[in-house]
């Protein structure tokens, strides 16, 4: 794809992103979110991180079937164990990379 269409896409996606990200802060202004929503708000990072991890580990193929990226799963599992043992973040990430690359090299 070349030409004007491409720039229309970039402009529209930029605009959509600005509106989506700005809506909450613009509508709320300096008000706080309702107190009864706060118990949900504190759990939002938990839900968001889990969702992002999940979609990173699965691929939906053209046939509609879900495939699991087993190499990445092994890497994330290695990082999880390291993190639970209170290993430093950078070491945990390095273990994930080594584990994933090793599985990919072996498969």
């Amino acid at each position: 794809m070349q030409g004007i269409d491409l720039w229309v896409l970039i402009a529209m996606l930029t605009l959509a992103t600005v509106v989506i990200k700005g809506a909450g802060p613009f509508l709320l202004g300096d008000r706080d979110i309702p107190a009864r929503l706060r118990p949900a708000e504190v759990l939002l990072p938990t839900a968001l991180m889990t969702a992002l991890i999940t979609v990173a580990l699965i691929r939906v193929g053209a046939d509609g079937a879900i495939r699991i990226d087993s190499a990445q799963c092994v890497g994330v599992l290695a990082a999880t164990m390291a993190l639970l043992l209170r290993a430093p973040l950078v070491l945990s990430l390095a273990l994930a990379v080594v584990a994933t690359a090793t599985v990919r090299a072996l498969i």
């Binding site: 890497g75 994330v76 990082a79 990430l93 994930a96 990379v97 994933t100």
Partner: peptide, 12 residues
């Protein structure tokens, strides 16, 4: 294996 860093970071 660099693609695993993002989900591993989210795991942390």
């Amino acid at each position: 294996g660099l693609d695993v860093i993002m989900p591993a970071f989210f795991t942390a």
